[in-house]
Amino acid sequence: MTVHLTTLLAIIGMGLATYASRISGLMLMRGVVVKGRLKAALDAVPPAVLMAVITPTVFMTGKAEALAAVATALAAFFRLPLLVTILVGVVSVVVFRMVLH
């Protein structure tokens, strides 16, 4: 169980950089009245970012992942519970990978 000084310093630096990214969004919004166009923009953050996050997995990885994404989206479309939807995704990606590889 050892901790090297340079490793520790690097970790602290990375921790500060990460926390800065998290707290700055909150500080930016302090005292800002959210309405109109700004509200429309902020309301779009979740769908826009979630889409961007999944894009490489869904569209740029392979057929198995793309098909599993379709299966997951169908499960979500039929309003299955979150856990069931995740299971549909995980099971279908395993099946599609076995079938397609």
């Binding site: 979740p46 769908p47 889409m51 997995t57 599993a68 995704g89």
Partner: peptide
């Protein structure tokens, strides 16, 4: 794939019609 599946499931809950369609298409 579990994380991608959860993000897809949550993304579906933000669907509010064609405007959301434009947002996610451009984002992708």
């Amino acid at each position: 794939f579990a994380f991608a599946a959860m993000f897809i499931a949550i993304l579906a809950g933000f669907w509010k019609g064609p405007r959301t369609g434009a947002v996610v298409i451009i984002s992708a």
